Amino acid sequence: MDKQLDGRTVFITGSGGVLGSTYVRRMLEVGAKVVATDLPGARADTLKEAHGDNPNFGYYDLNVGVEEEVVEIFKRVMADGWQPNVVLNNAAITGEMLMGAGKPFPDFADTSVEDFERTMRTNLTGAFMIARQMDRDIVGKYPSALINVASMYALNGAHHPIYDGMPFKNFSAYGVSKAGIHGMTVWLAGYWAKRDATVNTIAPGAVFNGHSEEFQKRVGALIMQDRMAQPDEIADVMLFLASKHAGHMTGQMVNVDGGFSAW
């Protein structure tokens, strides 16, 4: 098997979700050491059960929205002998996650400031705090890379009719936060350019995660390939961005959306 990430230690936030857990699995398969973080709970437990016996895997509880936790995370990780040289800003709150907390999905007019700001705190401010701490603890000390995870809705408007009659909608704060993620990428790319650090954005398209056939049909009609992505198809590109082969890329957004953004 191609060990394209040999010598890389990859630090991932939001590691327990459908994409995060796929990144963890695939990176371990191709030779990386992986430091996974997430909120404590079932998702974290599943990760630890799957990979806890692998000496190249480490897990740490982390809420990226809590500054005190972020300030200490790289120090904790390094004290345990890990040396992250690739960081994935992957943690995010989606509208479905808000519903999972027992809340009905609000119309835009009924969106609370609390839910909007909570989403921004995790998706954008949390990503900023991780990058800031990377600047303090990693950047300039050895070559490194930051990969910010955006979305097909970062720079493209949501197609609201596909959500008609569905139990969830496209949440405004999600798209806003993901646009901000790429803004941070291009700002940091120039700021870190002379410190041997690259910064790029990956923008996944619609990823299948148990969606209904009707929703798959509606989304597929917006995509050149006429289907949603499988998580491993997003991970294929993430592996490249995390590898030495992407060493001359910085400040870029890579769309992995089956042609959604190219219509």
Rank of each mutant, 00 (worst) to 15 (best):
D2R: 00
L5Q: 08
R8S: 02
T9G: 08
V18F: 08
L19Y: 10
G20F: 12
T22L: 08
R26L: 07
M27E: 04
E29Y: 00
V30F: 07
A32S: 11
V35W: 13
V35R: 06
G41I: 03
R43Y: 08
T46R: 11
V64Q: 02
G65M: 01
E68W: 03
V70N: 11
K75D: 14
R76V: 14
D80I: 00
W82E: 06
P84T: 11
N89Y: 12
A91V: 00
I93T: 15
M97W: 03
L98N: 04
M99G: 07
G102C: 05
K103C: 04
F108K: 08
D110E: 15
D110R: 14
V113K: 07
R121C: 13
T122G: 09
G126V: 13
G140V: 10
G140W: 05
A145L: 00
A145Q: 08
V149N: 03
S151Q: 04
S151W: 02
D164V: 14
F171W: 07
F171P: 02
A173H: 11
H182G: 01
G190W: 01
R195D: 14
V207G: 00
G210H: 05
G210D: 06
H211L: 03
A221W: 00
I223E: 11
M224N: 00
P231I: 07
D232S: 14
E233C: 05
I234H: 01
A235M: 09
H245W: 11
F260G: 01
W263F: 07
